[in-house]
């Protein structure tokens, strides 16, 4: 397949701006958090999305995952506009895009055991029977380095690194083609961050996954992604191949962002 797996065309999201009931006919002021975003994610491609907090990265990611309806623009899955998909294609999109949240502790229901959460995910995304689900869970847990003894626990009984691994297991259970990673290592210490980054690179190779990787950390994005998009105030101000964006940044903001990254060298 040559076209992009997921294409975002003219995506915008505004809050407010509805018609007011009084005075009649007037519109409330709208807040645009994402505007005019065009972004293609090809199969197997890793796209990094960087920008400061409040720049609209997470909103855009949630739109791409279908968790939030955009107020403008269209999503295309395998070349088809989302609203034109047949129910079967829609289910494929549903299965095909998964999400890893920044804070794994809030992304796992605190009152359910991890095994139950993961089994539910399998039931929702696959037609496997009980044994099939168990086998699939065992396989993915092994690939993600999750000790199966942990699955009988609750999320709060896990460390941050373990919980994020479980969240990655959950995202991969349905054999997705695109995984959206929303600051998946920002809450982790550097030694655990290195573990998770290695895991993500390995899983991508093994399953041919595409990533939309959101981070404020340019060095992390540079490691994992071939394409980088820089977001500011809801717009993508620069996107391109990793070497171009980081090597010859066109936009002044990208240059400032690059200059601000702390270097591992003594100053002065």
């Amino acid at each position: 397949m040559s076209g992009p797996l997921l294409a975002l065309a003219g995506i915008g999201k505004a809050y407010g701006g509805g018609r007011r009931w009084w005075p009649p006919g007037q519109r409330a002021a709208a807040t645009r958090v994402v505007a005019d975003v065009d972004l293609d994610i090809r199969a197997g491609d890793a796209v990094g999305l960087v920008g400061e907090s409040g720049s609209g990265k997470t909103t855009l990611a949630r739109i791409a995952a279908g968790l939030l309806p955009p107020t403008e623009g269209r999503l295309h899955w395998c070349g088809q506009a989302l609203h034109r998909l047949s129910p079967a294609e829609r289910a494929a999109y549903r299965r095909g895009v998964q999400y890893v949240f920044q804070n794994p502790q809030t992304a796992l229901n605190p009152r359910r055991r991890l095994a139950a959460i993961l089994d539910d995910t399998l039931r929702g995304l696959t037609t496997l029977d009980r044994d099939g689900r168990r086998a699939r869970l065992r396989e993915m847990a092994a690939q993600c380095g999750v000790d199966r003894a942990l699955l009988g626990r609750f999320a709060h009984q896990l460390s941050g690194g373990q919980a994020q691994r479980v969240a990655i297991v959950r995202a991969l259970l349905g054999a997705p083609r695109l995984v959206i990673l929303d600051e998946p290592v920002s809450a982790l210490d550097v030694s655990l961050q290195a573990q998770i980054l290695a895991l993500l690179a390995d899983l991508r190779r093994r399953h041919g996954l595409a990533y939309l990787f959101i981070s404020h950390d340019l060095a992390v994005v540079e490691r994992l992604c071939e394409t980088i998009a820089v977001m500011r105030e809801g717009r993508i101000i620069e996107q391109g191949a990793r070497g171009d964006v980081l090597g010859q940044p066109q936009h002044d903001y990208t240059r400032r962002l690059l200059a601000a990254v702390p270097r591992m060298a003594p100053v002065g």
Partner: peptide
């Protein structure tokens, strides 16, 4: 986030209400 995660797992609203919301 775990409600969003349940939506991503393809569950409908009744299942989400029963399994994710009511226990909490």
């Amino acid at each position: 986030d775990y409600i969003a995660a349940a939506r991503l797992a393809g569950h409908g609203e009744p299942a989400i209400l029963a399994r994710e919301v009511l226990p909490n």
